[in-house]
Design a protein around this nucleic acid. Structure first.
Lengths: 215, 215
DNA sequence: GATTCCGGAGAACAGTTGTTAACTGCATGG
DNA sequence: CCATGCAGTTAACAACTGTTCTCCGGAATC
């Protein structure tokens, strides 16, 4: 144990990664539920039977893709959440980060938004679990903010969920807009998303104004 | 022209509807992009080739499903939007309507949320267009509300989009929760969604408080 | 240096797919 | 009443699917 990876393991990881990459690319024009095992191996250039050396099924590969995709998302969320400055600055910075992530990992974003409600149960559940972790993390960041003083845990949770959904939706819209060369569509998406974040921020500031607001 | 339907046309519509119904049911466990033509005809009990008498392809059938699904959603949105009463009442009523719709048309809700970001381009576009219409309609209702006095069209639009996305997301969560017999999961979803609507409502009331809010 | 391990190849399997062509039977319109 | 239209059928097509079993060659282990 505690060996240097070894030529063998390294090669295996390489092929495994090639399978994941090929699958992600093939998923641009279809859903996981229609992705074929032979299709993926053909794209990689290996025999269909070699697939089983890495995954038991396409669903299994899908779950691996969820982890890869959400791992790449994780640092982004963390950075967003740690950003300092006043409301407007934070919003602008958050939108830059989201747009940057979509540019860097478009296939990951497409995969997550597509398969979140997609036809493969285990993959849906994997995405739900991972997004749940993110929501908790966002919730913790929100809770440590003075604006959230006096908030119940449930209220913090619902706000975190609102933010996560808005981020995902915005990422998906950025992805759709990435076909536009002029950047006009992207700008429109950013404007709308900024206003939505602003409105939620305002609601947040006045949440405890009225009796019963803090349930 | 202007004939009484006739036995022939009536039978054709019946088979066509049977195809749509069978497809919708088969789509519970997969995505449209993996749904097979033979699979659908087999479920209906007709020959595969008869499919072409009604649709040119599965994608074509998918677009027809979009119209059917969103047509059933339309009256619900309309009712929600026309509901009177104070904020809390409206929220409770809206959630009842959403939950009721999910109960009445679970397959429609599943189809729309799944294929909104799904693997079939024309279907995604059809859903986007139809949801765009809804958003406009919601926007018109919001604009005629005294709370929105002095709002720019763009701001009303972003708010409408926020509401539509929240409705869809909530519908999807209700659908997931419908497996639970006790109704406990459903209650949890309703509580969170109610708070989110409340927070958005608060943000709405204070939107014009600060300079620059009305962009 | 001999032996075990294991990622990958090859061939074959029974099923499945979408699409074609030519057909049948019945409701329709003249 | 007869001719046309047309929903649905049957048969056949080449191509594709996931999965099995057997084998090969080179790395890893002793």
């Amino acid at each position: 144990m505690s060996h240097i990876p070894g030529v063998r393991q390294a090669q295996k990881r390489k092929t495994r990664q090639a399978l994941l990459d090929a699958a992600l690319e093939l998923l641009e024009g279809q859903s996981l539920s229609s992705l074929g095992l032979r299709e993926v191996t053909r794209a990689v250039g290996i025999a269909p039977t070699a697939f089983y050396r890495h995954f038991r099924s396409i669903e299994d590969l899908g779950v691996a893709l969820v982890e890869e995709a959400l791992d790449s998302l994780h640092p982004m969320i963390r950075t967003t959440v740690e950003t300092t400055g006043d409301g407007e600055e934070r919003i602008a910075r958050a939108l830059e980060l989201i747009a940057g992530h979509v540019d860097a990992y478009p296939a990951h974003v497409r995969f997550v938004t597509r398969e979140r409600h997609g036809g493969v149960r285990v993959v849906r559940e994997a995405i739900r679990d991972q997004l749940g972790r993110f929501t908790v993390e966002v919730g913790e960041a929100l809770a440590s903010d003075p604006v959230s003083a006096g908030w119940s845990a449930e209220d913090v949770g619902m706000l975190a969920q609102l933010y996560v959904d808005l981020m995902l939706g915005t990422a998906s819209l950025f992805l759709e807009a990435s076909g536009d060369e002029t950047g006009e569509a992207r700008e429109r998406v950013a404007r709308v998303a900024a206003r939505q974040m602003r409105l939620i921020g305002i609601g947040r500031e006045h949440w405890l104004d009225r009796p019963g607001g803090g349930g």
